[in-house]
């Protein structure tokens, strides 16, 4: 905030689960300020606006017409991203789009082209890039401590967290399937750490919780890279017991390994839930603040967006190919990134 004395005015579209993380981050920041929210559920928008002391709208058109809103965070379900993204950018507002950027490769490029044409900042919420552990791994790689990365294993396995059968996350038409819904996070981390885009994907999925599921709640994506390197990205919402929470981040380089093991935070607890590793206050808290600070810097033209737009588009390309791999049961080659 050296040049800009007034905080960036931010509006949030869709005030469901993830919007809470963005609102908490905004409260901790001085460079940006929540000025308005909107939701198709107008009553919810009003209630949230009251609690957040900002303006509540029942439609995006009203929020975009508010001059105090300089930038918008879209926190709506995945199938709305392309259309709402274009609408926000056409209104001349900077955009932080929750992941995935869109449900299709063409859709991702359509939103990106709109931002480029209007010279507006477009960032995509690949929030895992901003966690302490992800940054620490990237710093080790940049310092050359483990040599050239040639393998990444990312595991984010948990038990069931989604609501009932009608939930949009469970409908591949609405969420894009698990590759697009959560897989993009892992794809983005893997490509970022490997330092190159993936060129192929082979996926194995399971309907772990119920055969009636249309999405693969357990998903393993194997990415191939032009260097011969590879990544295995495993994401699950179907583990038993439901309290399962297993996280593993490993990068193997030509000279050594960096591994963030399940119990890396050093707090093991035996409770009625069994043995669990507890996270330490602070280790994840700064993630969304960092993500938003990077977005504000990009909107102020003080820095490039993080991740680069080409990486966010690449994550969609890979995820779309991963869903195709699940359907076809074979390896899918990916063209050059945007």
């Amino acid at each position: 905030m050296t040049e800009h004395e007034s905080p960036l005015g931010v509006g949030i579209v869709g005030v469901g689960g993830i919007a809470l993380s963005h609102m908490a981050a905004l409260r901790a920041m001085t460079s940006a300020q929540l000025v308005a929210v909107c939701d198709v559920d107008a009553a919810r928008a009003t209630e949230v606006a009251h609690l957040q002391r900002c303006t509540g709208y029942g439609s995006l058109e009203e929020l975009l017409a508010d001059d105090e809103v300089e930038a918008v965070i879209v926190c709506t379900p995945n199938m709305t991203h392309e259309q709402l993204g274009v609408q926000v950018l056409r209104a001349g507002k900077h955009l932080l789009m929750e992941k995935p950027l869109a449900l299709t490769s063409d859709g991702a490029r359509t939103v990106a082209a709109e931002a480029t044409a209007r010279d507006l900042a477009l960032a995509v919420g690949h929030s895992h890039r901003f966690s302490d552990q992800s940054l620490a791994i990237r710093e080790l790689i940049d310092a050359g401590d483990i040599g050239t990365p040639r393998f990444v294993r990312i595991v984010m396995n948990g038990g069931w967290i989604w609501p009932g059968w009608q939930a949009w996350m469970l409908n591949p038409e609405l969420s894009g399937g698990h590759s697009l819904h959560n897989g993009v996070h892992l794809v983005d981390l893997a490509s970022w750490w490997m330092g190159e885009p993936a060129t192929s994907v082979f996926s194995v999925g399971q309907h772990a919780t119920s055969e009636a599921l249309e999405i693969h709640d357990y998903l393993v994506m194997e990415l191939g890279f032009a260097s011969g390197g590879s990544a295995v990205c495993e994401i699950s919402r179907g583990e038993r017991p439901r309290s399962t929470g297993y996280l593993e981040l490993t990068v193997v380089g030509t000279d050594g390994i960096a591994a963030r093991t399940w119990d890396a935070e050093g707090v093991l607890a035996w409770t009625d839930a069994g043995l669990t590793a507890w996270s330490v206050t602070g280790s994840a808290d700064r993630t969304f603040v960092r993500e938003l600070e990077a977005f504000v810097a990009a909107a102020r033209r003080e820095a490039d967006v993080v991740p680069p737009l080409s990486a966010a588009i690449h994550a969609v390309d890979i995820a779309v190919a991963s869903e195709e791999s699940l359907r076809a049961g074979r390896t899918i080659e990916i063209g050059a990134p945007a």
Partner: peptide
């Protein structure tokens, strides 16, 4: 049924069903 990848210096990964 598996898909493997290898670097020039022999580091190998595979995923199989």
């Amino acid at each position: 049924e598996l898909q493997a990848h290898a670097t020039a210096d022999g580091a190998t990964t595979f995923l199989g069903r």
